[in-house]
Design a protein around this nucleic acid. Structure first.
Length: 586
RNA sequence: CGGGGCGUGGCGCAGCCUGGCUAGCGCGUCUGGUUUGGGACCAGAAAGUCGGAGGUUCAAAUCCUCUCGCCCCGACCA
């Protein structure tokens, strides 16, 4: 491709509104153009990169035995009502009403395709002999994100590879799951991404039933906890916390005192008022678990983890109690609950760390009043001590003696053992070898293809621009003739372009008649991995100047056989990104 | 939904507080010339509903009201 024949609108200045590196660079390098909040046009360069990622995903899915199909963006709303997901998605689900002659049809723009594929499978699969099978597609998904942001990282429409496995047994599901997990690792490796698989909140199957594939990045929206000692990694929701030794306290216990705290109810207000740290307070949250109110105690600076509380209580449904329930249970308005002297006797669950608190402050179960000098064991006795909070940086690793480190990350993939949630709701059953009718067991596996691109840029760039690995680069080789009006240079550049193209290499020839500096700046900005300079100096000696984007200096290669030399370099790099990984610390 | 910021040729911005000639500047674009290995220089040119609507005023980019849109933080996130 010749530069002047395509559309590569590079920009010197950062467009207003773009803040994170991937967004800034995708705009400046002319990869995308914004249409509205959460919707982007992929310009030729961005489109090519996206296609490269798509191709890698497709190749690895195919070789893992998955079979590609394509489902529509529209589906009938009724399908989503059957699984209860119209309510579950809420405003995120984009609903449309179509006018047909004499009637209206309610449809949704699919945010994912579990319902649609299950509806297909219930009609097409009815025997254990047809399974296992994994079906996948790469199509646009639509979600009305409340707040699209960070360029293409969170948009209302995005390209997702979604795969669904259908299995006759839990063991078979495990095998399908493992195959996808391994395929995902290969995909992200081939993309040159520095990725981290982390344990995620698991569904009905339990165990290690869900993993997210994360790209550690400063600007990532997700938080993961990682132990460098043993490699344990989990997202913040899921992360377990290692048990801490109960350090014997030598502090003498104060008597309980009542303190008037008029209008002071939040942790910040109370700690400021009592001149103590938030961690010296016992936070008392009232939940309703399966219809029964319970109290949950946490150290003031910790955050409750609803999943952990639900599991500790073995509850199906858990939500924070409404104010009227709190008033009834504690005898005080919201903000003054405490474990001592509650009006009603309800189960008390305490985070393990509450056990070690000494002379803590809590609400007094009376308006505008707190207690100080409260000690667990002496003043109240929880029914259960358990890990009930979100892990934070510095918490003990649950697997070894190390400590957890908090890292921000971009989620690019998610594998999940769904079980029978959708097949049961939609009635997708099969006849097993024992002649029993059973619900099909399902797994789902997603990759955000746009996020592969944005995530790569977010973690692979320098001051001058993007640094692509050959495997994702929109063009693998950039030929830059220093002087376009010089016939000899252009002839060499043109021939090289044609030979490389014929050899199956993606080449871009910068035929703009501008100064070399402009070309070099743009070459760095768009990040093409291998740059070939055709200049009068080199041509005199029969040489071309070649430079990898991530190297500081250029090398010279012979003009004779240059196309073969370059094609060979690219082919080798395509197979393993070896040079890219060596230079970019991956 | 709460808080904050912004909207002026294709891009980045100044002007607004304190209303007043023909709305400026840099980049980019076009023409001509001189240049030519890390974002050249000279001369000239085209290109603007000052986001939109209403209002105040002799006069509005500027003041007031409403509205649309974009960005950031928070809440939310199958």
């Amino acid at each position: 491709m010749y530069w002047t024949r395509t559309l590569i609108p590079t920009m010197k200045e950062t467009p207003e509104g773009a803040e994170i590196p991937s967004h800034v660079l995708m705009l400046r390098a002319g990869l995308v153009s914004q249409v509205m909040a959460g919707a982007y046009t992929y310009l030729p360069l961005g489109f090519r990169a996206l296609k490269k990622a798509e191709r890698i995903v497709r190749e690895e899915m195919d070789s893992a035995g998955a079979v590609e199909l394509a489902m529509p963006a529209l589906s009938p709303r009724g399908l989503w009502e059957q699984t209860g997901r119209v309510a579950a998605f809420g405003d995120v689900l984009i609903q449309l009403t179509l006018n047909r002659p004499g009637r209206k049809v309610n449809v949704v723009l699919n945010p994912t395709h579990e319902e649609i594929i299950t509806d297909l499978v219930l009609r097409q699969i009815n025997s254990y002999r047809q399974m296992p099978i994994t079906l996948y597609q790469m199509t646009s998904k639509f979600r009305n994100e409340e707040r699209p942001r960070f360029g293409v990282l969170r948009t209302s429409e995005f390209l997702m590879k979604d795969a669904y496995s259908f299995n006759a047994s839990v063991e078979s599901l495990g095998q399908s799951y493992d195959a996808m997990y391994k395929a995902y690792c290969r995909i992200f490796e081939r993309c040159g991404l520095n990725f981290l698989p982390v344990e995620a909140e698991s569904g009905p199957i339990g165990g290690d039933a869900s993993h997210e594939f994360m790209i550690p990045a400063e600007n990532g929206e997700d938080s993961v906890l990682h132990c460098s000692g043993c490699g344990y990694a989990a997202n913040q929701e899921k992360a377990e916390i290692g048990a801490r030794d109960a350090a014997a306290s030598s502090v003498s216990l104060d008597p309980v005192r009542q303190v008037a705290t008029p209008g002071v109810s939040t942790i910040e207000q109370v700690s400021a008022f009592l001149k103590c740290r938030p961690r010296d307070l016992i936070k008392t949250l009232i939940y309703v678990a399966d219809g029964q109110p319970i109290a949950v105690l946490l150290r003031g600076d910790h955050e409750a983890n609803d999943g952990k509380i639900r599991r500790a209580r073995k509850a199906e449904k858990l939500e924070l109690a409404p104010p009227e329930v709190i008033a009834k249970v504690t005898g005080a308005p919201v903000g003054f609950a405490g474990p001592v002297g509650m009006k009603q006797k309800i189960p008390i669950l305490a985070d393990r760390e509450v056990r070690q608190m000494v002379n803590a402050a809590t609400g007094a179960n009376a308006a505008d009043t707190h207690l100080t000098g409260v000690n667990p064991g002496r003043d109240f006795q929880p029914d259960l001590f358990a890990d009930l909070r979100n892990a934070i940086a510095g918490d003990p690793c649950p697997r070894c003696s190390g400590k957890l480190v908090l890292r921000h990350a971009i989620e690019v993939g998610h594998v999940f053992k769904l079980g029978t949630k959708y097949t049961a709701a939609l009635g997708a059953k099969f006849l097993d070898a024992d002649e029993q009718l059973k619900p099909i067991i399902m797994g789902c596996y997603g990759i955000g293809v746009n996020r592969i691109i944005a995530g790569l840029i977010e973690t692979s760039h320098d001051q001058d621009g993007i640094i692509w690995p050959v495997t994702l680069a929109p063009y693998e080789v950039l030929i830059a003739p220093v002087k376009v009006p010089d016939e000899a240079s252009m002839k060499v550049a043109g021939q090289l372009h044609d030979q490389l193209t014929a050899a199956g290499i993606d080449v871009l020839l910068d035929d703009r008649d501008c100064r070399a500096g402009v070309k070099f700046k743009d070459a760095d900005l768009i990040g093409v991995p291998l740059r070939v300079v055709v200049g009068e100096r080199g041509l005199k000696e029969g040489k071309l100047e070649v430079k990898w984007r991530w190297e500081k200096t250029a090398e010279k290669i012979d003009l004779d056989g240059a196309a073969e030399t370059l094609a060979d370099l690219i082919r080798r790099e395509r197979s393993d990104n070896a040079r890219f990984r060596a230079q970019c610390g991956k």
